[in-house]
Design a protein around this nucleic acid. Structure first.
Lengths: 157, 157
DNA sequence: GATGGTCCGGTCGATCTCGTCCACTAGACG
DNA sequence: CGTCTAGTGGACGAGATCGACCGGACCATC
C-alpha cells in the first residue's frame, strides 16, 4: 500500500470503470503492472468490488428513512441481525454504542411500504421499540474523502 | 426503462466493471445496443457513476460515527449545508424530518480526529447542539435491493 | 566481504477480446 | 408514405491479458 496504490484506489473510487491503460498513464507504469496491483488490492480486500451508482428515485425508491432500534433485555443480537438482513429494503445496518443499538437506512417506493416495513422490524423478537425518521432530502451520500497518508498501513500489505 | 434496462442496471450495480460484451450476452442483445442503452441511462441520471468499493479500515478510516445536528432558530440551512459540505470527513448528509434536522455519517482514522470534527461541526453558526453516536460495527452498507417492478417509471425515459 | 540463488516488481511484445463508429434494416406511428 | 426508434453487423483501433525476460533487494553460503 504505497503512494501508487493509493493513487490507483483514489482513481477507481472516483470512476470504477477507469481502464488499466488509463490508470497506467496516470501513475506512470504499464498496464500489466497496474493490473497486477489492482488484483492484489482486490485480494487483500482493500478493493471490495465495483458498483454502478444508481439514482434511487429513478428506480422507484423515492422514500429514504432511518430506523433506530431499541432492544429489550432478552435480545439475541445474532438472531436480530439475521432477521434484519433478510429484509431487502434495509440498505445499511450499523450496530451502535447507545440506547438505539441499531440504525437502519431503508428505501421504499411508497409510504405504505415504509409502514409495513416498520411493523415488520418492530415484530422481530428482542426489538422493544423502533424510532423512524424520514429523510426529506439527501444532501449527499457516500462521498469519498482522500485516503489519509499517515504511514499506518494497518497490517494490510 | 424496460425489463432489459432493469437487468442492465442490476448487473452494473452488482459489478460496475462488467463489460458491454458481457452485458450483451446476458440480456440477449449486441454490444453496441447495450452501450447505447447504458449511455442513455447515464444521461438520464439513472446511472450516476461508477465506484470502486473500498474497505474503510484498510485505508486507515477505522472509525465511523453518526452525528445528529439540532439547529437553533437563526439557522440558515443553505449556509449550514455549504459548511458541512466543506468538511471532507462527512461522507453522507441527510436532511431529516425531526428535531435533529441533519444526520451525518463520518469516518476518521482516530478518536482524536472525531473529537476535532465534532467541535468543528458544533462551531457552525446555526448549530445549537450535536449528538454523536459511535458505530461499533457495520453489519452491512449500501446493499442493493431489487428494482421494484411497479410499472411506475417516474417520468424518466 | 564478495558470490550466487531467489523473490518481487516491473517492462516488452504477441494475441485475443472489447469498445466504438458507421451504414443498413425492421417495426411503430402519424 | 415518410420518419423515428432500436437493433444488427462489420471494421478498426484500443484495451486486456499472458508469457518471457530484466534488474534490484535480500539472504545464505563460501
Amino acid at each position: 500500500m504505497d503512494e501508487i496504490d493509493r493513487t490507483i484506489v483514489n482513481l477507481l473510487r472516483a470512476d470504477g470503470r477507469t481502464s488499466y491503460a488509463e490508470l497506467a498513464r496516470r501513475v506512470g507504469l504499464t498496464a500489466p503492472s497496474v493490473q497486477d496491483r489492482v488484483v492484489k488490492l482486490e485480494r487483500n480486500g482493500v478493493i471490495a468490488g465495483y458498483k454502478a451508482v444508481i439514482d434511487s428515485e429513478a428506480i422507484g425508491l423515492g422514500i429514504t428513512a432511518l430506523i433506530g432500534i431499541i432492544p429489550d433485555n432478552s435480545a439475541d443480537h445474532q438472531d436480530i441481525c439475521e432477521r434484519l438482513r433478510a429484509i431487502p429494503q434495509i440498505e445499511s445496518c450499523y450496530f451502535l454504542a447507545g440506547v438505539e443499538c441499531y440504525q437502519l437506512k431503508v428505501r421504499v417506493p411508497k409510504m405504505a411500504d415504509l409502514e409495513r416495513l416498520i411493523h415488520r422490524v418492530g415484530a422481530i423478537p428482542g426489538v422493544a421499540q423502533t424510532r423512524t425518521t424520514i429523510t426529506l432530502s439527501t444532501k449527499w451520500e457516500d462521498r469519498q474523502q482522500p485516503i489519509p497518508m499517515d504511514g499506518d498501513d494497518h497490517g494490510v500489505d
